[in-house]
């Protein structure tokens, strides 16, 4: 690599939907020079054992993440609200994915 070329490619997060999956699942991250090649890299790195039917890639810098420091204010308050869980209803046997 010569001086003016940056050796650092942006980081992408990869989401793959499996054959029987309903939603895309985060499987890891990788580097790529652009969005389209990120998709190809994701195919090569994360679906080479026949795992996926659909891939999403997104620049890691586009993701806003919660901080571990916020864990208590964000999540602790829901810990004792049992009435938010639909555990008091009968779910019919033929309703899937609950």
């Amino acid at each position: 690599m010569t001086g003016q070329v940056s050796g650092e490619w942006p980081l992408y997060e990869v989401f793959v939907r499996g054959k029987r999956g309903l939603n895309h699942v985060h499987v890891g991250s990788l580097h790529a020079p652009d969005d389209q090649l990120a998709l190809r890299h994701a195919r090569d790195v994360y679906t080479r054992r026949n795992e996926g039917v659909s891939i999403w890639v997104v620049r890691s810098s586009a993701i806003t993440a919660s901080s571990p420091d916020e864990k208590d204010p964000l999540f602790a308050p829901s810990g004792d609200k049992v009435y938010r869980h639909p555990t008091f209803y009968e779910i019919p046997a033929d309703v899937p994915h609950m």
Binding site: R20, G21, V27, E51
Partner: peptide, 16 residues
């Protein structure tokens, strides 16, 4: 398991 929906690797090693 056949109803493993949240695992991207669920299709691994199943005959097709």
């Amino acid at each position: 398991e056949p109803d493993d929906h949240d695992n991207a690797y669920a299709g691994l090693l199943v005959n097709d």
